[in-house]
Amino acid sequence: MTKSPTVRQRRLGRELRRLREQAELTPEAAARPLGWSRSKLNRVENARITVTPSDVANACDLYRADFATKTELIQLCKDAAVRGWWTAYSDVFTGYYIALETEATTIHKWEPILIPGLLQSEEYAYEVIRAARPELTKAQLDRHVSARMTRKINLLGPGAPTLHALVDEAALRRPVGSPGLMARQLSDILQISDWPSITIQVLPAAVGAHSGMEGAFSVLGFGDEDPEVGYTECSSGDVYIEEADHVLRLTLRFERLRGVCLSPEKSAALIAAVRSSHDLP
């Protein structure tokens, strides 16, 4: 079973299910001639396991798909099998969030405690990971930081998705690491905030109670063809939110938070002011 279903795998599973339903075949009726169990067919359609191109070809023949559709899905299957950059860090990344994040076209992120990972400098990331994971050896810590920086390069480079990050003012003011580190981190954020694909807004402390107090979350978009996915992280593990109404709730929560955040321009001014306070002895 794959631990990192990509957007392509999810799309392939949905297309195979659509073709099966269009052919008016129940899961049991489809699984039998394919030589699959009912459980395997369900896992294929839900992108829980990978399939081979010959599996896809056989399913397309059974579902009476036309030649163009069959060819497209076989290629989609081959593309889905390509290893992503994140697999080189399988000892660091768990779950399949990074696989989804890498293929996203939009990322909406709320972070109430820390500078979001995609905006972290190397030295800030080092201090945060070291504090959160004191059991790591120096080599393991360096590897975690390397993975985070590679993730940042892939998602903030050419062809990157649009990133809209909402950050609590407390995350800007919390001192991390040695003197001067936070000032440098906030300088990095100010530089990145000028990029056309990035929007950064700060939730001021004066807002008081707000709809994001239950914790950080992300909503990943993949264009018109694929549904959005929500994500939250807690100490007991990752939670992926795929039900449309649940994703909508997260999206509405993001919009409510955005509405009480400072504008990007005023956010930049606040970040600059907080940076100056970190510069003080």
Results as ranks from 00 to 15, higher is better:
P5H: 03
T6I: 09
R8K: 15
L16S: 03
Q22E: 15
A23P: 06
P27L: 07
L34R: 05
R38F: 08
R38V: 14
K40H: 09
K40F: 05
L41I: 06
V44Q: 02
N46M: 05
R48L: 06
I49A: 03
A59P: 02
C60S: 09
L62V: 14
A68I: 12
E72Y: 09
L73C: 10
I74W: 06
W85N: 09
W86E: 03
D91K: 11
I98P: 00
A99L: 01
A99S: 09
E101L: 12
W110D: 02
P112C: 12
I115N: 08
L118N: 11
Q120R: 10
S121D: 08
S121W: 00
E123C: 05
Y126L: 15
I129P: 00
P134K: 06
L136C: 03
T137V: 10
V145A: 10
S146I: 03
M149H: 11
K152D: 05
L155T: 15
L156F: 11
L156W: 06
P158Y: 10
P158D: 14
T162S: 15
A171Y: 04
R173A: 09
V176M: 11
G177Y: 04
L190H: 00
W195V: 01
S197R: 14
L203C: 01
A205L: 14
G212M: 10
E214C: 04
F217V: 03
F217I: 05
V219H: 05
G221N: 11
F222T: 13
Y231F: 12
V239F: 10
Y240D: 03
V247L: 07
E255Y: 02
R258E: 13
G259Q: 03
S263H: 03
L270K: 14
A273W: 00
R275T: 13
P281S: 14
